[in-house]
Amino acid sequence: MQMWLNASLFTSTVQMMAPLLLAALGGALCARVGLFNVALEGLMLMGAFFGVAGDHFTGSPWLGVLWAVVVSAAFSLILAFLTLHWRANEIVVGIALNFLALALTTFLLRSVLGATGAFYDPAMRGLPIWTLAGLQRVPVLGWLFGYTPLVYLAFAAAVAMHLFLFRTVPGFRFRAVGINPEAAASVGIRPARAQYVAVVVSGVLCGLAGAQLSVGDLTMFSQGMTAGRGFIALVAMMLGRSNPLGVILASALFGLTDAIGIRLQGFMPTQFALMVPYVVTVIAMFFFRDKYLRPLASRG
């Protein structure tokens, strides 16, 4: 039992939570402008695939990250266009995009990378690990260091989003749009513009999240590798009340259960260990009684 509570548990928690945090922040920004972004999963998957594809074709993991960000931002534009411009139901579009992403990445995996199931290129380099001058060897606090830059970026993004939403004028307007779009429009704020920006930024963040999975944690892409993380991110976003700092805590909770789940694999059937994050997510929703998202979710 002791092996559970060592520093490596913290390390793997941080590793597990980083993609969740990035995606959940994207979802939170959308929620702040009044959109329920169910497509996080698909956006992440696009990011994961294009991260690896970019890395493979350019030889640079950084360009891979760039590909990931650009493509998932572009993909998120479909969501923005259909829901904002054409008023399609955001849940329907979100779900369809998730599956379109799955089909598209598998299609490209086979036709462009010529692989079935998974793609791995031994020549491919992953993102570097920033050890910050060996700080990860510091006792007790060592687990705070030794991750890819994207992990640090995730935390920085949370802080930046917090400042943006609560301290800047555009952030104030974003929140205004989410609270009452009609009122926002009446004072000359353009709700659709804020919503477009939020969706595209969520695309960027999900692209980063996917890249962290495929060229950060690992250096490979496998079919459907996001495995529901986008949905867990959605719950993390709700649990954190779309508040960037709250989202950090919620993502940490899910990162931790993920990390524990992996450790439990030695003690119980794999399937039950894999079930842990989903069960914890459902239980977490017991405590999420805030109903502000309900009208959003049951619209249409």
Partner: peptide
Amino acid sequence: FMLFPPFTVAENVVAGREPSRQGWF
């Protein structure tokens, strides 16, 4: 009414024409 109930009176009044310093509200 076209108001934002969670915001303060001042925030509601200035919404759309907020006084700012280098982008900060």
